Amino acid sequence: HNLTITQGKLFFHYNPKLCLSEIHKMEEVSGTKGRQERNDIALKTNGDQASCENELLKFSYIRTSFDKILLRWEPYWPPDFRDLLGFMLFYKEAPYQNVTEFDGQDACGSNSWTVVDIDPPLRSNDPKSQNHPGWLMRGLKPWTQYAIFVKTLVTFSDERRTYGAKSDIIYVQTDATNPSVPLDPISVSNSSSQIILKWKPPSDPNGNITHYLVFWERQAEDSELFELDYCLKGLKLPSRTWSPPFESEDSQKHNQSEYEDSAGECCSCPKTDSQILKELEESSFRKTFEDYLHNVVFVPRKTSSGTGAEDPRPSRKRRSLGDVGNVTVAVPTVAAFPNTSSTSVPTSPEEHRPFEKVVNKESLVISGLRHFTGYRIELQACNQDTPEERCSVAAYVSARTMPEAKADDIVGPVTHEIFENNVVHLMWQEPKEPNGLIVLYEVSYRRYGDEELHLCVSRKHFALERGCRLRGLSPGNYSVRIRATSLAGNGSWTEPTYFYVTDYLDVPSNIA
């Protein structure tokens, strides 16, 4: 807008934040220059609390790290170098490059900038070799853009010569660093050979998330399962459950009422301010606690030095998902009996873990797994792929695949051998790939016309006998059925096997 004052003059007093240069501009645009008398524009009460600059400061050096910015700028000295009290560095987070010096300023003089007072450097006698002032900004957020400017702080001049310097606002972004852990990993099994893994992005990506790394490792069953005799009275049979499938998407929606109208769909109840505040506090606490764990609990591995020492970490090797089922080394339970199943799973520490690289999504279907087997899954978020990966501390989750139908069934015939004193040795093959492992066998036998009897055969007993022995049988026709019990439950009964026990007292003698 054009402003013209045809008559009258300007009068400025007691404006401590208004620089004289701005008042002189007002004289020019209003056409009143030359009308004012000496005392109409006070030299001592206008701009006496402001830094009124008329020179431009330029930054000469900028260096960044993930949490620091090192700045240096060209030296500046007023005509009387004693008038320079120091520099004021202003900075704040700036997602967009549209910041002005006066953003967030209120009537009390406060604003949204963080201000650092910096002492002037030592003055050199040689004007050509003056030290460049600077400042190291610490405690910054990774991968965050900051708006920065600097200006001088000078003393009051009796001659009211307006001098000083100020830089333009520059924008500097800190470097990326390792992201925080992925949030809320959930693993479920939808079949006997697959596990579905879902997660949420890290709360602090500290860069642009480029991919996720998912490692999985087959877990050995508890050692007590191999040692305890679950045929003993009072000892509860062990059981394991597989990871249940995901709930429906509708039930997972946030901010939804727990109660549904019987007449149909209901609208979600909005969260109160107290609920939102509580969630923010919980989120802040979780982030602080995660940072504490990362800094205190997890110790970084030592990389190899120039002395030739090897990095103890196993090298990563990509495998196809079809090879995942046989990740671990199978060892027989008892070496003397080769027909026992290889369900003991000690994992070799030198073995390469299978892994998958996930790009542009937060889910993965891990296939080719062994049925009813526990897996430990390790999830890392990465925001750099080359020249070397920059990934987060791992988040861990466990899951067990679903049982395989008929995996616990005894394959092959049940054979028998009759000894003296009416002892019958029953023999059968253990299931080759049971659900988890076989903890015991149930032997059901009966003599024709009598009630059915049951015998429990422990895992250890089966390994020693290759089956079991029935003792003290009365003469007669017998039928026997056997079924295995694994961590997933009972298998199917075998087809009945028949044998006849004679009275050993009636056996004919070869003595003449």
Results as ranks from 00 to 15, higher is better:
Gly207Ala: 03
Asn208Asp: 15
Ile209Glu: 11
Thr210Asn: 11
Tyr212Arg: 00
Phe215Asp: 11
Trp216Tyr: 13
Asp222Ala: 11
Leu225Thr: 10
Phe226Ala: 13
Leu228Arg: 06
Gly234Met: 12
Gly234Pro: 11
Pro238Arg: 04
Pro238Cys: 02
Ser239Ala: 07
Ser243Ile: 10
Pro244Glu: 13
Pro245Val: 12
Pro245Ala: 12
Ser248His: 07
Asp250Ser: 09
Asn255Glu: 05
Gln256Ile: 09
Cys266Ser: 11
Cys269Asp: 04
Gln275Ile: 03
Ser284Pro: 02
Thr288Phe: 07
Phe289Asn: 01
Phe289Asp: 05
His294Lys: 03
Asn295Thr: 04
Val297Ala: 06
Ser304Glu: 13
Ser305Trp: 04
Glu310Ser: 12
Asp311Pro: 09
Pro312His: 13
Arg313Trp: 07
Pro314Val: 13
Arg318Lys: 10
Arg319Asn: 12
Leu321Val: 14
Leu321Phe: 11
Val324Glu: 10
Gly325Ala: 15
Thr328Ser: 12
Val334Pro: 12
Thr340Asp: 11
Ser342Lys: 15
Ser342Phe: 12
Pro346Ser: 14
Thr347Pro: 08
Glu351Leu: 12
Lys357Thr: 09
Val358Ser: 03
Val359Met: 14
Asn360Arg: 11
Leu364Gly: 15
Ile366Trp: 03
His371Pro: 07
Phe372Pro: 00
Phe372Lys: 01
Tyr375Ala: 11
Tyr375Glu: 00
Gln380Val: 06
Ala381Thr: 13
Glu389Val: 12
Arg390Gly: 05
Ser392Lys: 00
Ala394Asp: 12
Ser398Asp: 04
Arg400Thr: 03
Ala407Cys: 01
Pro413His: 15
Glu417Tyr: 06
Glu417Thr: 10
Ile418Ser: 09
Glu420Arg: 04
Asn421Glu: 15
Pro431Met: 02
Pro434Cys: 07
Pro434Trp: 02
Leu437Gly: 10
Val439Asp: 03
Tyr445His: 05
Tyr445Trp: 10
Leu453Thr: 15
Val457Asn: 04
Arg459Thr: 07
His461Gln: 09
Ala463Ser: 11
Ala463Leu: 10
Ala463Glu: 06
Leu464Val: 06
Glu465Asp: 05
Glu465Asn: 12
Arg466Thr: 07
Gly467Asp: 01
Cys468Thr: 02
Arg471Gly: 09
Asn477Pro: 09
Ser479Phe: 05
Ile482Met: 10
Ile482His: 02
Thr485Phe: 07
Ser486Pro: 01
Gly491Trp: 01
Ser492Gly: 09
Trp493Phe: 08
Pro496Met: 06
Phe499Glu: 01
Asp506Thr: 07
Val507Thr: 14
Asn510Ala: 12
